[in-house]
Amino acid sequence: MGAPGLAFDGILGAALLWTAWQAIHAAGLFRAVVSFMVFGLLMALAWVRLEAPDIALAEAAIGAGITGALLLSALGRLDWEAGRATDECLRGRDRAFWVPTGLLLLAGLGGAAWLLPAPGLGEPVAAELGRSGVENPVTAVLLNFRAWDTLLEIAILLLGVVALWSLGPTPWPSSPELVSPALPMLGRVLFPAFVLVSAYLLWRGSHAPGGAFPAGAVMGAGGVLMLMAGARPWLSGDVHGPWRWALALGMVAMLGVAFAVMTGGHGFFEYPVELAGRLILLLELAAGLSIALLLFALYLGGEPPADWETRRPA
């Protein structure tokens, strides 16, 4: 690794600790949220240092980008003045408990983790990679070896949207005075770039870092930017017309493939080896599109109306 690498890691670690502390304890919620977003971006660097470029992409787009946008939008909906007046974090409370507990945890968990032999599954994954249909081992794990996890994960995104919409109508478009005059143009210029980047990531995913999740996240972030730039979301219509199927597309496609391969005498999710590559590409396309739309729908923070002008409920 060498001394420069170690120094970089040390500075990065210190910065991560500081931003994490600030994200929780900074005076004022706005500062806390911004610290959290910086924390997310720095984490992306840490993932790169730990040889996890896939995670770095996802963290930058989702952890810092989408989560940050969600946090800021929630902050905008809170009573800002009241929030500042009663800003409190009982930092000094129970210090007699937290300092020894923290040290104990640090020693205990750190020691336990240090002892871990970490045998890992790198070898079995490499051994079966040839039969998985893709060259990128992470994609192979996500969409073949552990595809059931991925199905449930997309189901959770959809469930999150359903849960948020069940809580109430969307506040958008909420505060137009926040939008800078340059943003609409910027948004329109940037959106095609977001689409291009997503398409590239999706295509790359089968053989190198990338794939449906980063691609979907980048596209979703582009959509969020468009919304901030004052664009009216297309998500509207009675019962949102076909949009709800588009949101459910990823989950339905995965369920469909999982059951469809059973007609050929295979098990649940058991792709025929010769078709595996194409099936995974199909699923990635469906998952990527619906992840983009789902992240965007999460950002709406509530049920979109049937008509954005009259705000008639769908």
Binding site: L158, L159, V162, V252, L255, F259
Partner: peptide
Amino acid sequence: TALVAGLPLTAAAVAFAHP
């Protein structure tokens, strides 16, 4: 076995798209 886990999820997608 697959239906036990897959059926409610499929039904959930349908119930979401067509209340």
